[in-house]
C-alpha cells in the first residue's frame, strides 16, 4: 500500500517539475512463446452459477483472441463433501449451478488432453462494503479524483481484498490488492489510486464508478499483488515483471479463486460536493 503512494508521488513530481513525460509506440523484437493452458475459475458467494473458463495463451505478436479449450472434464468438490460437475455452456466456458459458501474450501479438477490440473481455494468470511467516497487531489495544477472504499475489517481473521473498478461500465486496467496487515480490525478507508496512465481517461464529473470488493484468500492475494506491482511504472521503471504465482499446478496459467463479492456504485459530482 505504501509503494502505491511512492509511485503516485513519482508521477506528481514529474508533472510538477513540468516534465510532460512523452510516450511513443515502438517496435519490439520479441521471441514468441508456445501456447499454454489458461484456467480462470471462480466460486462466488452471491451467484447461483459458477464459471470456469479454459483457453490458451497466444504469442505476444498475435491478436488478443484466445482460443477456447473445449471438451474438458471439470469438477469442483468442496470441503463439505459435495461434488459439483461442470458442463460446457459456450466453447471453453464451463458452468455449474451452486452457490459459494464462506469458509468452505473448493477443490478444482480439470482434465484436458489427458492431463490433470488441480487447484484449491477457500472462500473467506464475508466483509461488507460499507460505502464509497471521492477525494479530490490537486497538485501542480492537475486535478485528480480518487475513489475510496470503506469497510470494517474483522479483527479476528486475516483478510485479503481485491478491488475491481469500472468507470461508466468499462473495467479499468489498474489491479488493486490489499490485506489487513496494517489495518486489522479497523474501519478502513482504502484509496484506489487511479490515473490516466492506466486507461487514458481521468475520472471526471458525471462518471459512474462501480467498485467490486472481493474478499480473497492468501494465495490469491499474492497472485493479484504480483500483477499490481508490475503494472506500476514509477521512477526507476518499476519491478522486473514475472508470472504471478498461480495456485493451479502442472504449469497452467491463471487461477482458481473462491471469493465473497460486494459491489457499490458512486456518481462523481461537481467539486465542492
Amino acid at each position: 500500500m505504501k509503494t502505491t503512494y511512492i509511485h503516485f508521488l513519482g508521477a506528481l513530481i514529474l508533472s510538477a517539475i513540468g516534465l510532460t513525460s512523452c510516450e511513443k509506440v515502438i517496435d519490439v523484437d520479441i521471441k514468441d512463446s508456445a501456447s499454454q493452458l489458461v484456467i480462470e475459475g471462480t466460486v462466488v458467494d452471491n451467484a447461483d452459477m459458477q464459471t470456469i473458463k479454459l483457453s490458451r495463451s497466444v504469442a505476444y505478436t498475435e491478436d488478443n483472441t484466445y482460443p477456447p479449450v473445449s471438451g474438458a472434464q471439470v469438477v469442483v468438490t468442496d470441503s463439505r463433501g459435495f461434488e459439483h460437475n461442470y458442463v460446457e455452456r459456450l466453447p471453453g466456458v464451463y458452468i455449474s449451478s451452486f452457490k459459494g459458501e464462506p469458509t468452505v474450501t473448493y477443490n478444482m479438477l480439470v482434465k484436458v488432453d489427458g492431463k490433470d490440473y488441480t487447484a484449491k481455494s477457500t472462500m473467506p468470511r464475508p466483509v461488507e462494503l460499507d460505502s464509497l467516497s471521492v477525494t479530490e487531489v490537486t497538485f501542480g495544477g492537475e486535478d485528480r479524483k480518487i475513489v475510496a472504499v470503506h469497510y470494517k475489517d474483522p479483527a479476528e481473521f486475516v483478510n485479503q481484498y481485491r478491488f475491481v473498478m469500472w468507470v461508466n461500465g468499462i473495467q479499468t486496467r489498474r489491479v488493486y490488492a490489499n490485506n489487513d496487515r496494517l489495518t486489522n480490525g479497523n474501519d478502513v478507508k482504502d484509496e484506489l489510486f487511479y490515473s490516466s496512465d492506466d486507461d487514458n481517461k481521468e475520472i471526471v464529473d458525471g462518471d459512474a464508478v462501480e467498485i467490486e470488493m472481493q474478499s480473497i484468500d492468501e494465495p490469491m492475494y499474492k497472485y493479484w499483488v504480483t500483477i499490481a506491482d508490475q503494472s506500476q511504472n514509477g521512477p526507476g521503471g518499476g519491478v522486473t515483471p514475472g508470472n504471478p504465482p498461480t495456485n493451479v499446478n502442472n504449469n497452467a496459467l491463471g487461477y482458481f479463486s473462491a471469493y465473497v463479492s460486494r459491489r457499490k456504485t458512486i456518481t462523481i459530482r461537481e467539486t465542492g460536493q
Partner: peptide, 22 residues
C-alpha cells in the same frame, strides 16, 4: 528488460506471460 513472450486473459484484463528474465 523483461518483455512478455505471450499473453492471456484473466480477470477481464490482458495479462502477460514471461519466459526469460531480462
Amino acid at each position: 528488460v523483461t518483455y512478455p513472450a505471450g499473453k492471456y486473459n484473466v480477470g477481464g484484463l490482458t495479462t502477460y506471460y514471461y519466459t526469460q528474465r531480462n
